[in-house]
Design a binder for these strands. Structure first.
Lengths: 240, 240, 240, 240
DNA sequence: CATGAATGAGAATTCATTCAT
DNA sequence: TATGAATGAATTCTCATTCAT
């Protein structure tokens, strides 16, 4: 086999794998893990039943494959990007929250459901062993929030007495619960605004309000100063 | 049949029903809804399989029966009691939180799992109809929190600009997520303390800390004033 | 117990029995024997499940009870009446046919279905023993047709060479099959006319149209004579 | 896979399908549709229970498969053959009748029962949809009779005022009812003769008896003439 | 006589997984 | 590598019947 052929072959394999993952993701999210048979997945992916098992070994591993891909291709890359490009603590939290919610609620909350069902519940049923491959990915993801918090405290943006663990729960718990209720009542419509509504009381509880200069506040103050100077200019002009 | 006999008969029925509910609750929570067969439930309850269906009609209704009982016998009574006996807002929230967590995490988080799995996930799969019987119970339960918040605002304990919906998400979302992670790492040990750790930043974000600045709404007001002044300045300039 | 009380009691029993039979008849005919549970029958009759078994012992006997009643209260009385009051052979057949069809097709062909299903098919499954109670009733019913035919022949209204067994098949087979197809396409509408359409060719084949030739039996006789003569001829030839 | 392997594979599949159909046919006919479990069918066919559903999807479809095969492989082919090879109207009806009865009463009236139970009764319960696949097959089959009748009328063999619908009922109704009673009393013994006994009065009602020359009659007359000539020859010989 | 709770065998059907081709 | 026929255990649920009250 030439190198070219080899490459093309590998590409086909990967395409197939992706196809199966896509089909399974959609079906699991739509109908639930148990209500989705491997037969349906195979049919939706346009492959035979045997092929699904060729690629993933079992239905459980297929689910793990979905989550693995989600962490590697969606959750973690953008989280890292946010941490690297946004520096202001408030903005970081906001971007992170929007990213988290957008990622989980895409495709009619496909991944939200998946994570809820499988990681939240079936996981311990399946056995801890199976989760082990996911743990580091999740740890890495959560680590991004931890870093934002740590650095926020260092800069004095956040209270210095915040504990990281409760904070994670506050952040992710509120977002996921809120996202769920919002989806239930309004679908994806206005989700970003709702995230802001959720963040408001959270931020209020986190930031160090002995320092009266949140970014919004600083901006306001700058505007007020501009306004004052402008008024003075106007006065001067009129006085002339 | 004498009245005595009738009463004894009814008692036996209720005892049996309770037995089935108990068995099913434990099994559902331990192994998950799907992994628990009606056969196992019957065996655990010490009745025949047919009897399970005699009492509950279907596995789904059995699950609804469990949740129904949980709301009616655990969640709502104590929530009402707290609201009636504790008057201080902060204490109310704390008691409510402790009650919620204790109720859900009892018996190795039996009910937490049940609610997560079934209400959070299967629910939409099963169809809205089936949930309808649960909705009012849930509404009533959540209503207790709403009342605490409403009265807290009236008394000036809580910021007046809090919205009820995000607040629910903040409260229940944080508690349930936090309860889950805590259970995962430490089991029930030290749960009450952890609840306090979760409540701390929440409370910080909710209560009226009398500093009338830095609030988003206040900022907005200030910005609006700036805006007005700027407009006036511009008008004046243009008037020239 | 007074005689009065005794009588009233017996009446109530009979009323209950009738109620169960009515309910079962309707349900069996509507949904089929197997698709109708004794529980549904009990509910429809407004009695408890146990009561059904008190009165009929088993589901099978209940079915036999229905048929028994149908023969005794509907089929046979009117058949006897027709034979007693209508004397003309053609009219007798017509009245009998109309009666048969009307009885079977009443209540959306309730009894037609019952007879088809149970007597036609399940019967041998159930075992001959169970049928034994029905046999004499059926025999009596069919006997009315036999009598009409016999007397018709005696009077010269019908061909003398008609055999009774095929005739029954012709009569009942055509009527029931025709009734079924007619019900299927048009419901009960115009059923009486259709019975006449069915009877026309039947009558044509039965009545004595005074042309003593061309009948199969006559042909046979003639052929037998030919045969005899041929044999005789051959014998004679061989004798030579 | 080589073509050979492919062919062998397909053959095995078809053989298996046939095996399941055979087993199911026999069991349904013997014990009835409801009394035959899919487990029994699988066991009788020597396959696993899952395989039955792999091939037929459901017990209902299995039944439809049986009827489908019966129409396609037995009823229709021979009916078409009769219409194509036998031209005389009387003979056509007779052959058709014999064919119908023979087909239905083979294997202890296996198919008669099947058709009675399922098509006659369960059908409307099951719902019209399921029958739709059978309807055209039945229509085609009945069409053969219609054609024989139509052409019989054109040739003047049959009365010109016959209606096709009642005629079908007369024909099939009489045959099936008669077949049933005959089977009940005598089994298959003498069935063909009985069919003739049933056809006699039917034919009497159908044929155009203004033309005294049915084929049988013509044949008889020819035989009579032969006989006469033979007798005369014998006389002559003897006279010599 | 009447009830209806209790039974447990049995039904149809599904499904993840295997393996010969 | 890919297929898809085959499996058979497991599942939910139904039902006629019994029997203590």
């Amino acid at each position: 086999m030439t190198d070219n052929a080899r490459r093309r072959s590998r590409e086909r394999l990967e395409e197939r794998e992706r196809g199966i993952l896509d089909a399974a993701t959609k079906l699991f999210a739509t109908a639930g893990f148990h209500a989705t048979s491997t037969r349906k997945i195979a049919a939706a992916a346009g492959v035979s039943e045997g092929t699904v098992f060729h690629y993933f070994g079992s239905k459980n591993e297929l689910m793990l494959g979905i989550l693995d891909r989600f962490y590697n291709e969606v959750l973690n890359p953008r989280a890292a990007e946010i941490l690297d490009t946004v520096m202001d603590t408030r903005s970081r939290l906001r971007e992170f929250a929007l990213h988290h919610v957008a990622a989980l609620s895409a495709d009619s909350a496909l991944m939200l459901r998946l994570l809820q069902v499988y990681v939240g519940v079936e996981l311990e049923v399946v056995g801890q062993d199976q989760l082990s491959s996911l743990r580091p990915l999740n740890r890495r993801y959560v680590g991004h929030l931890d870093r934002a918090v740590r650095e926020g405290i260092e800069r004095g943006d956040l209270r210095s007495n915040l504990q990281v663990r409760p904070l994670r729960d506050l952040f992710f718990g509120t977002l996921e619960y809120g996202m769920r209720t919002h989806l239930y009542h309004h679908g994806n419509e206005g989700m970003a605004d709702y995230v802001d509504a959720l963040l408001a009381p959270i931020w209020e509880g986190l930031h160090d309000n002995d320092r009266p200069n949140s970014d919004a506040e600083l901006l306001t103050e700058r505007l007020e100063k501009v306004s004052l100077r402008l008024e003075r200019s106007v006065d001067t002009l009129e006085g002339n």
